Simulated scan of single mutants.
Amino acid sequence: MKKRLMTPAALSGLALALTLSQPAQADWDDVLKKQGEKLLQGQTAPESKSTPVPAGMDTATLASGLKEALKVGGERAIKELAAEGGYANHDDVRIPLPGALDTASGLMRKYGLDSQIDTFEASMNSAAEQAISEATPIFLETLEGMTLDDARRIYSGGDTAATDYFREKTQGPLGSRMQPLIEEAMSSTGVMQAYQALVSQAESQVPMLKGLSPDVGEHVTDAALDGLFLRLAQEEKQIRENPVARTTDLLKSVFGQ
């Protein structure tokens, strides 16, 4: 079996951990353990159920139904996330601290940095809520580009196949369009000021965190899009599985009454 070499960042973290006093060593060991657990998350995905194409249903109608499903689901998802607290008040989409700062947040809180952490998290989530509506134009452009072949494959795919298609087609353009807007929103919501205050205090109180400089704009953008795709997948599953969610005649025709 081929051995994996530790990255410089991992070696640096290990060296720092070995130089700590015993109480702090235990805290840092816990941080490293949590980082390892996070890396293991997402290795397995839940099974998706396929949807059989209804007998006699033509592909053009399927395509129209899928576009309608994504349009309805996307509008719901974006509206929910753009509302005040759309990210911040929901654990499954709330944007955490970036990278190692999130892993070490429990340790930083032990050093009395609760206020700085909370302020920074709140400002990141507020920036995402302000910018996520900018996903709508790209979202609609992607729907117009869906082909008939795409439609039949997506319809009979898993219960989030349309969302997966949307993510594949739009993640790059959405990130490019949204990051400058998120960074602009970050300026107005005080993200960087809050970040600098947190890092300054963290480095003085927790020496092993010195030198961390994550790209906050990229982190917030990626996390905001992850939240969008998660909400869109939930909406798609609802439309496929729950008749109540089929709010138009076309959706009822394509997905059943």
Rank of each mutant, 00 (worst) to 15 (best):
Q116D: 04
I78R: 02
P214M: 08
E37N: 13
V220R: 07
D222L: 12
K71H: 12
T189W: 00
G256E: 08
A104G: 14
A185N: 05
Q22N: 09
K49S: 12
T59V: 15
D102F: 05
L174R: 04
M108L: 15
G217K: 12
Q35R: 15
A128V: 09
K38F: 14
T221L: 02
T160V: 13
Q22L: 13
E141F: 06
A202S: 04
A24K: 07
D222V: 13
Q171D: 13
N125V: 05
K67A: 09
P137C: 04
T142D: 00
F255T: 05
T170A: 13
A15E: 09
S64P: 00
T247F: 01
A24R: 14
A197V: 03
L212C: 08
M178D: 06
M186T: 02
K169I: 09
V206A: 06
S115D: 06
G211P: 01
D29Q: 14
T248Q: 10
R4L: 15
E37H: 10
V72R: 10
E134W: 03
I154V: 11
D91A: 14
T7N: 05
L70N: 01
S64Q: 15
Q171L: 13
D159T: 01
E134H: 11
M1E: 06
D226A: 12
M178V: 01
P96W: 05
A162K: 05
T160S: 09
L113G: 08
D118C: 06
E84R: 11
K237D: 05
G158R: 07
G36F: 14
G73A: 06
G36T: 11
E168T: 10
K49A: 14
V199N: 12
E121Y: 05
L5S: 14
P54R: 07
K38W: 13
L39K: 15
L251Q: 07
L14P: 02
D118Y: 06
I239M: 07
L107F: 11
L20A: 01
Q25N: 01
A135N: 03
